[in-house]
Design a protein around this nucleic acid. Structure first.
Length: 542
RNA sequence: GGCCCCAUGGUCAAGCGGUUAAGACAUCGCCCUUUCACGGCGGAGACAUGGGUUCGAUUCCCGUUGGGGUCACCA
């Protein structure tokens, strides 16, 4: 009996790998094209870090005329979640980070290298596991969880490195006949990789982001096929990325330490290893400690959070690219209207250490993104947000013609207003354009003086005045009330007046809007209309 | 604990042996014919630490400290 017989005994129905090698040939792509992927587990939840990876992958694949595909890694049935795949696909769609190929629904896919769902690729993994057994590079292991627990304890007590390796790998030394016998007797088993590595030797691996990394060789006989017949991550990675002809594996940092294993796996299987890019995770400051954004503790970890607070997807992407390639910021300044996709994104410019997530900066980026929107876009996006999350805003926006005017104030010029950083800001931002203020935040001028200002201004107010005329009348009112016409005059001799035209206009601003900080008063008055303005002023004139 | 990675202002970061150590966010002034926002100008603010190597180290090497990752039939 030889390895081939053993392989046949374990996987009698598995096809020879040539079948798959032929079915999924090398891709015919231009030189330098990068084939990469986003390979999440279908928990339905897309982490901001996942989006970050996917975005980097897509950017770099598209830029090189390569392929970005979506593979679902669902080999752990315990973690399975209803509609998990749909959740991922729709999140990617929301951010316009859609894959060129891969899963497009729970069980449909596009592309020539499918299926892209690991749970449906059992036959393929088994074919390759069989191949490994034939080569004598994998073997069945009959150790029970209890056996392994015992092994671990023994190693711990002896203070030696725990794990299934070398002399501790009991089953690797079973004879083929013994193995066959146990299989025939129906003993449960897993398939393990027979590692040729030695812990006292070093391997050098290259990572496109981290650079040169040196590890002890892997000597663990890791499980490649679990007792349920599905592969572990490591083996699925080997088979899938080989067969899907991935050139660059872009994945999270936490995989870095299994790099020696993966490199060894590719080498032992006789396949060309992809290039690796390990991305540092996005961190959060938690009481002075850095830690990964956590799905459970941090609301901002979920990509869905950003649509809930109304940060446009573009802004989130822009922020993320910002973290990834810090030269993006300069590029953006020089290319205000260009698409993110046109930016020459580079993997090797990514930071080796994890960045702290900075909501303030995100909102600043978002502010810039929204300031470039037209009034119509702001209207449409606010409306979409309102329909989902803010009924009161929705009601306001129902008057489209008026709302467009409101949202168009100081917008569309070369110094557009930047006061909206998320759609959830909009209602508070413009509410006074829809209803009379209920509170008034007066500053310097109060009481009787307010009355005086209101009545003086009402005497001259004309909705049809042009801006210059309007402003001149503001100055006239200031003078009438005993205030300086010009700010400069006042500043040179501040003892001469109680204040200047700015104080007067602020008072009027407050009467009209309730607040001291608004966009251009002249435009507000124009949009509000004669009757409303007069009505609001009259409240104080009486 | 073993192994691995990392370390520049509050945050994100340029920098690759000789620099007045960029820039962005945040912060603080001033300016922009009224507020706010925008924009402009300016201020404050950093190379974790100890040893080497070198004529010279933020940059290279080693130790220390600190942070992070990883040690599964989870991915």
């Amino acid at each position: 009996m030889d390895y081939k017989d053993l392989a046949n005994l374990i996987f009698p129905d598995a096809k020879p790998i040539e079948v798959y090698e032929k079915m999924y040939p090398e891709r015919n792509l231009p030189d330098g094209a990068i084939v990469t992927r986003f390979a999440p587990s279908p928990t339905g939840f897309v982490h901001i870090g996942g989006l970050y990876q996917a975005l980097c992958a897509k950017l770099v694949a598209n830029r090189t005329k390569g392929v970005f595909f979506l593979r679902i890694e669902d080999t752990d049935q315990k973690r399975e979640i209803e509609n998990g795949i749909e959740g991922i696909i729709s999140s990617l769609k929301d951010f316009d980070v859609e894959a060129d190929e891969g899963m497009i629904s729970e069980d449909e896919w596009k592309g020539e290298y499918g299926t892209y769902k690991q749970s449906s690729r059992k036959d393929i993994y088994q074919a390759y596991a069989k191949y490994m057994i034939e080569l004598g590079k994998a073997y069945p292991c009959f150790c029970s969880p209890e056996d392994q627990e015992e092994l671990r304890k023994k190693q711990e007590n002896a203070k030696i490195r725990p794990g299934y390796y070398g002399v501790w790998a009991k089953c690797r030394n079973l004879s083929i006949e013994e193995m066959a016998e146990k299989i025939k007797a129906g003993e449960p088993y897993v398939v393990r990789f027979k590692s040729p590595g030695r812990e006292d030797r070093k391997v050098q691996c290259h990572d496109l982001i981290k650079g040169k990394v040196v590890f002890p060789e892997n000597d663990m006989d890791i499980v490649i096929i679990k007792s349920d017949g599905l592969p572990t991550y490591h083996f699925a990675h080997l088979v899938d990325d080989h067969l899907m002809r991935t050139t660059h594996v872009i994945r999270s940092d936490e995989w870095l330490s299994s790099l020696p294993l993966h490199v060894q796996l590719f080498s032992e299987a006789g396949f060309k290893a992809p290039k690796y890019c390990h991305i540092s995770p996005i961190m959060k400051n938690d009481n002075g400690n850095k830690r990964k954004l956590s799905k459970r503790k941090d609301k901002e970890a979920a990509v869905s959070y950003y649509s809930e607070i109304g940060v446009p997807p573009d802004a989130v992407k822009e922020y993320l690219v910002n973290i990834a390639n810090s030269n993006f910021e300069n590029w953006r300044r020089a290319n205000k209207d260009a698409k993110i996709e046109d930016f020459e994104f580079q993997l090797n410019k990514m930071s080796v250490s994890g960045a702290l997530f900075d909501m303030v900066k995100l909102l600043d980026v978002s502010k810039g993104v929204i300031s470039r929107y037209s009034a119509e876009e702001v209207y449409n996006e606010s409306l979409k947000y309102a329909e989902k999350y803010d009924p009161k805003l929705k009601k306001m926006l129902d008057n489209k013609e008026y709302s467009m005017k409101v949202l168009g104030i100081e917008r569309g010029n070369n110094k557009p207003r930047k006061d909206i950083s998320k759609w959830s800001d909009v209602r508070e931002n413009i509410i006074y354009m829809y209803e009379k203020p209920t509170e008034y935040d007066f500053d310097k001028i109060t009481g009787d003086e307010v009355k005086k200002v209101a009545s003086e201004y009402l005497k001259v107010f004309d909705i049809n005045d042009d801006k210059q005329m309007w402003f001149d009348k503001m100055k006239d009112t200031a003078e009438k009330c005993g205030y300086a016409r010009e700010v400069k005059e006042y500043k040179s001799e501040p003892e001469k007046w109680p204040g200047h035209v700015g104080d007067i206009s602020t008072a009027i601003r407050v009467m009209i809007s309730g607040r001291r900080n608004t966009p251009d008063l002249y435009e507000i008055i124009k949009v509000l209309g004669k009757d409303e303005v007069i009505a609001r002023l009259e409240v104080f004139a009486k």
